[in-house]
Design a protein around this nucleic acid. Structure first.
Length: 336
DNA sequence: AGCCGGCCACTAATATTCGT
DNA sequence: ACGAATATTAGTGGCCGGCT
């Protein structure tokens, strides 16, 4: 069963039980709008882990095609033309030379000049949050724990709205040996190749991709497990290392505190487990693909997130209220 | 009044957890 | 292994009621 189908099923099941405007409702609404767009028989398929030589031997296209979703209920011609719209835009980047990357850098700095007013204010003004926020679950794999000394070797993103190009995944060339392959099974041979992008090449593409998913004047909320202590600091460091800034409309949410809240609410000891694995067990969620591969973790976390927000009766605005920004992380560090 | 024990709130130190 | 957040434990001080 496809991931999105599962998401949709959850939403359908949850809505009648939770009348308030929950995140589930938000996703439900999104799914419905997709249904309207794509027809009743829509199905979304995440690429399997064997696709495009991810287990080694990358083909020429080192970005696992962001066209990793497939929409049914459409005529072949429509689908074809649609997948070339965004997919092409991104994949063209993939093949682009350094000169085109420079152009993208200019675009990126334009992007940074965009000033976003406080999202909390928008919530207070009762703006329709769903129309403003794109929720993206993400995960990274790295060569180790130290954000200073180690490097990212894989990134996966999933836009929970679904639809075409809703996932993005790539290996990253760290330019060094991978010593912890026993964890994620990503080897030096898989990433230290000329056809695997380095971080400085990937960032503009990543920014471009996220931009293609965001709503006009909207925010992008990135969700990851242990984001505050691991994924986000890593990302911030990698951006900084290559003189990029995290866009101001990017918000981050950590699912680990949510898990703690749920366990507390249920009267369980928090020490009983807030790892992604423990949460999957708790919610009876099966891993699609290998655990500790970025996309597999993202797929699992997407489902865990739905369950957590449902248990906490947390509407999208509540999730937004729990967001943090990279600047908060650095200022908190300075305080100490 | 003086003493004692129990309770609560707070702080500091230590342990655990989590990501790869 | 690293580092941050959080949980847990231990220690401290203040307050109160009961007792002599």
């Amino acid at each position: 069963m496809s991931c999105m189908r599962i998401l949709m099923c959850f939403s359908i099941l949850q809505v009648p039980r939770c009348r308030t405007h929950t995140l589930a409702n938000f996703w439900w609404e999104s799914s419905r709008s997709l249904n309207r767009t794509c027809g009743k028989n829509s199905s979304f398929r995440l690429l399997g882990s064997k696709a495009n030589g991810m287990e080694g031997g990358y083909s020429k296209r080192w970005i696992r095609r962001p066209v990793s979703t497939k929409t049914g209920g459409e005529s072949q011609t429509t689908r074809k033309s649609k997948s070339t719209t965004i997919g092409h835009e991104i994949l063209d980047e993939t093949f682009s030379t350094r000169s085109t990357l420079n152009i993208k850098k200019t675009e990126v700095s334009d992007f940074h000049r965009n000033q976003y007013c406080d999202i909390q204010q928008k919530i207070a003004e009762n703006e329709d949050i769903a129309k403003l926020v794109t929720v993206i679950v993400f995960d990274i794999e790295t060569t180790g724990f130290s954000r200073q000394n180690e490097r990212i070797i894989e990134i996966a993103l999933q836009d929970l709205q679904g639809g075409e190009n809703s996932t993005f995944q790539t290996l990253v060339n760290p330019g060094r040996h991978v010593t912890n392959s026993d964890i994620h099974h990503i080897t030096t041979h898989m990433v230290c190749r000329p056809d695997v992008p380095r971080m400085e090449e990937l960032i503009p593409i990543l920014l471009q991709y996220v931009k293609s998913r965001q709503k006009p004047g909207g925010y992008v909320m990135f969700v990851a497990h242990n984001a505050r202590n691991f994924d986000v600091p890593f990302l911030v460091n990698e951006f900084g290392r290559h003189h990029f800034e995290i866009p101001q409309n990017w918000l981050f949410v950590d699912t680990r505190p949510l898990a703690r809240e749920v366990l507390k609410m249920e009267g369980l000891k928090v020490t009983s487990g807030t790892s992604l694995e423990a949460l999957c067990k708790k919610y009876n969620i099966q891993f699609v693909g290998k655990a500790h591969r970025a996309m597999a973790d993202v797929t699992a976390l997407s489902l865990v997130l739905q369950r957590l927000t449902f248990d906490l009766k947390l509407p999208l605005s509540g999730l937004i209220a729990r967001h943090f920004t990279p600047s908060e992380l650095t200022s908190a560090k300075k305080k100490k």
